[in-house]
């Protein structure tokens, strides 16, 4: 049974700080896990280290998602953040890697060759945020139709869309006879 062991957090922090060095933008303690902030280009190395380092063993993929910080009140290093959550069955703790991606060049190395579960979650982030994952085998839209234009979860996309949902051919009633003729 995998049980939560909060005492292992210290070992994790020491290992990650020794590995990442000044690439680490910051670290934050959350209620039951630690979040490590890096630049997008460094995220893959850190995730690979977390998985492959024998004393850590973060082999359990939990989640991958993104956040658009365009209108966030606190200044952030870049507009987008790709957040990967992992679990270590060995240490019994979680770790989160938050990788910042620039607005002008939204590209980040793909994690698909490290975790199979990253495949669909990265496609989802591409679909909804327009962040490109370099090296992804099949980076296509997953939730929206293939011919959809735009990335709806970005902050500058309106909630009610840009009129796509009203643009379907209707079953015409043009040949219906007017009331007085019928």
């Amino acid at each position: 049974m995998i049980l939560y062991q909060p005492e292992n957090h210290l070992a994790l922090i020491a290992k990650v700080e020794a590995f990442a060095g000044d690439k680490l933008l910051g670290r934050e303690e959350k209620s039951h896990y630690h979040q490590f902030r890096v630049r997008g280009a460094d995220a893959k190395d850190l995730v690979r280290f977390l998985r492959d380092e024998p004393s850590l063993g973060f082999t359990y993929f939990i989640d991958l998602t993104a956040v658009d910080y365009q209108t966030y009140p606190q200044p952030q290093p870049e507009r987008f953040a790709v957040v990967t959550t992992l679990l270590s069955p060995k240490l019994g703790i979680r770790a989160q890697v938050k990788a910042f991606v620039a607005e002008g060049d939204p590209r980040i190395p793909s994690l698909t060759d490290i975790f199979a579960g990253a495949n669909w979650t990265e496609r989802e982030v591409w679909d909804l945020y327009g962040i490109e994952f370099l090296g992804h085998p099949d980076l296509t839209r997953i939730l929206m139709p293939d011919d959809f234009d735009g990335h709806p979860l970005r902050k500058d996309y309106p909630l009610k869309g840009r009129g796509e949902r009203g643009n379907f051919p209707v079953f015409h009633a043009t040949t219906r006879k007017p009331a007085e003729e019928a």
Partner: peptide, 20 residues
């Protein structure tokens, strides 16, 4: 089928729907 309808601009069908 309607997969091919260009959704970027209001379609002719939408206009005719309004006409109805």
């Amino acid at each position: 089928y309607v997969h091919n309808v260009d959704r970027s601009t209001p379609s002719a069908e939408k206009a005719s729907h309004d006409k109805i």
